[in-house]
Amino acid sequence: MNEDILARVELFSTLSPKELKDLAKSGQERTYPAGSVLFKQGDAGSGLYIIKSGKVRIEQAIHPDRAEETLGTAGPGDVLGEMALLDDLPRSASVTAEEDVTAFLLPVWEFRNFLRSHPDIALKMLAVLSRRLRKAESRSHD
Results as ranks from 00 to 15, higher is better:
Gln60Lys: 15
Glu137Asn: 15
Ser36Glu: 12
Arg57Gln: 13
Val79His: 04
Thr102Tyr: 00
Leu105Gln: 04
Lys21Ala: 15
Lys40Asp: 14
Gly42Lys: 12
Asp78Ile: 00
Tyr49Pro: 03
Ala74Arg: 07
Tyr49Ala: 04
Glu137Gln: 14
Lys21Asn: 08
Pro64Gln: 08
Ser26Lys: 10
Ala24Ser: 14
Thr73Pro: 00
Asp4Ser: 01
Asp4His: 03
Ile5Pro: 01
Ala67His: 10
Asp65Lys: 13
Ala136Ile: 12
Val108Glu: 07
Leu126Ser: 11
Met1Pro: 14
Arg66Glu: 14
Leu20Ile: 05
Asp78Gly: 02
Lys40Gln: 14
Glu98Met: 07
Ile51Asp: 08
Gly27Phe: 08
Leu105Tyr: 08
Glu137Cys: 09
Gly47Asp: 02
Leu129Trp: 09
Gly35Arg: 07
Asp65Ile: 09
Thr102Lys: 13
Ala93Ile: 04
Leu89Cys: 03
Ala74Gln: 07
Leu89Ile: 02
Ile121Glu: 02
Arg66Thr: 08
Leu126Met: 15
Gly72Ala: 08
Gly77Ile: 12
Glu19Ile: 05
Gly75Leu: 05
Val128Cys: 05
Leu23Asn: 05
Asp87Val: 11
Leu71Asp: 15
Glu110Met: 07
Leu80Asp: 08
His141Gln: 15
Ile58Tyr: 06
Ala61Met: 02
Ala61Asn: 09
Val95Trp: 04
Thr102Val: 13
Thr14Gly: 02
Leu89Pro: 00
Arg134Cys: 14
Arg91Lys: 11
Phe12Lys: 06
Ala84Val: 05
Leu71Ser: 15
Asp78His: 10
Thr73Trp: 05
Ser13Gln: 07
Leu85Ile: 01
Ser13His: 03
Pro33Phe: 11
Ser130Asp: 10
Ser26Leu: 00
Asp88Met: 02
Leu85Pro: 02
Glu3Val: 02
Arg112Ala: 11
Lys52His: 12
Leu89Met: 12
Glu29Ser: 11
Arg57Ala: 13
Leu6Asn: 06
Ser117Tyr: 02
Leu86Glu: 02
Glu82Asp: 13
Glu98His: 07
Gln60His: 09
Thr102Asp: 04
Arg112Val: 14
Val95Phe: 04
Arg8Ser: 11
Leu48Trp: 11
Ile51Ala: 06
Pro76Val: 01
Leu105Arg: 06
Gly72Ile: 11
Asp78Arg: 10
Leu23Met: 04
Gly75Tyr: 11
Leu80His: 07
Asp87Leu: 07
His118Lys: 07
Tyr32Lys: 01
Asp78Met: 06
Glu29Arg: 09
Ser16Gly: 14
Val37Glu: 13
Gly81Asn: 06
Gly77Thr: 07
Arg112Met: 13
Pro17Thr: 05
Leu23Asp: 01
Arg57His: 03
Arg132Lys: 15
Pro33Gly: 12
Ala34Leu: 03
Ala122Ser: 15
Val101Lys: 03
Ala122Tyr: 09
Glu82Thr: 10
Val108Leu: 01
Ile58Cys: 08
Glu68Phe: 00
Pro119Gln: 10
Val9Asp: 01
Asp120His: 13
Leu86Asn: 03
Ser46Val: 13
Leu89Glu: 14
Asp87Ala: 12
Ala67Gly: 13
Ser46Gln: 15
Asp120Leu: 06
Phe111Ile: 04
Lys52Glu: 09
Gly75Ala: 14
Leu106His: 11
Thr73Lys: 10
Val108His: 01
